[in-house]
Computed example of a mutant assay.
Amino acid sequence: MPTDPTPDGRARQASGRPDWATIPNVVTLLRFLLLGPACWVIVDDPEGSWLPPVLVGVWAVTDWVDGLLARALNQQSRTGEILDPVADRIGIALVVVALGLADALRWEPVAVIVLVDLLVVLLAGRAAQEGRMRVTHVGKARTAVLFFGICAIVLGISVWPQVLDVGRVLVWVGAALHIYSATLYIRAARLGTGPAVRRPTDGEGQA
């Protein structure tokens, strides 16, 4: 959606609404707010309780809900475009750390996910903030695989242990995709080439 610069320097939607004031951004904010309770119930002996998988499941689903709402309501925004992947990265990093603390996940994939995220922030964060990059298909697949893996692990340590190993394998696959995705973003930021480079024809929106 087009934006009009206001005298105070803030971008406003053509309708007069501030760029950040959208329903999808409220959903993204909810994803942030769910992180604390979700991580707490993971670490706090979740065996036999449905609360951890429900909380983590709702947290994961909001990633698709905000994007769907942005498109359905025509409320794509530059704020959402920046906020959504930040919420994903922070959320995934904190939840896998919680799984590590709960002895539900080995620390190797946790370290890969967290360290790669830090590297992307350092080498590609500014380019992302300036809108010079876009989310890639690999990045979307990475996020989906990690979400499914995390949810399976939480379900496994809570009420359905049969899916625990499936979740751990998915997290390892997600960590591998995480590395590959990071190379695409860093390449786009540093060299200006590759599928993560934003083209002039790309529209704004939440990924």
Rank of each mutant, 00 (worst) to 15 (best):
V95P: 08
Y185L: 05
A87T: 04
G192M: 03
T201L: 07
G203C: 05
P200S: 09
L119H: 04
P53N: 12
F32P: 05
V41A: 04
P85L: 06
V26Y: 00
P2Y: 00
V97M: 00
E81C: 02
E130G: 14
W64H: 04
D4I: 10
W20Q: 13
I153G: 01
R134E: 06
V116W: 07
W160Y: 08
T62A: 11
N25Q: 02
L123W: 14
T201Y: 11
V116Y: 08
G139L: 15
R31E: 00
V27W: 02
N25C: 04
V120R: 11
P5T: 05
R190G: 13
T143L: 13
A102S: 14
R10P: 00
A152F: 08
D44T: 10
G36R: 14
Y185Q: 04
L68V: 01
P195V: 06
D4F: 10
P53W: 09
G167D: 03
G16T: 01
T62I: 02
A175C: 10
D165Y: 11
T62C: 14
D44I: 01
V138A: 15
W59K: 06
D4G: 09
W64K: 04
T201M: 14
T6R: 08
G192Q: 06
V95Y: 02
T79N: 03
L119R: 15
R31M: 07
V96M: 02
G80K: 07
T6H: 02
Q206Y: 00
L155N: 11
G149F: 01
L105K: 03
R71G: 05
G100W: 01
F147E: 07
I82Q: 15
A207L: 00
L68N: 00
V27T: 04
S181D: 15
I42T: 06
G100T: 05
A207P: 14
A128W: 09
D66G: 01
A127L: 10
P161T: 12
P53Y: 14
V159S: 08
A196Y: 02
F147W: 02
W64G: 09
S77R: 04
D45E: 02
L123T: 15
A176V: 14
G156W: 05
L51S: 02
I92V: 13
V97W: 00
F32V: 11
A38M: 10
L83I: 13
V135N: 11
R17K: 11
W40M: 07
W20S: 15
F148S: 13
G9E: 02
P200K: 04
D88F: 08
A104I: 07
L170H: 09
P195Y: 10
A152H: 02
V114L: 03
L83E: 09
V135Q: 13
L35G: 12
A14G: 01
T22R: 02
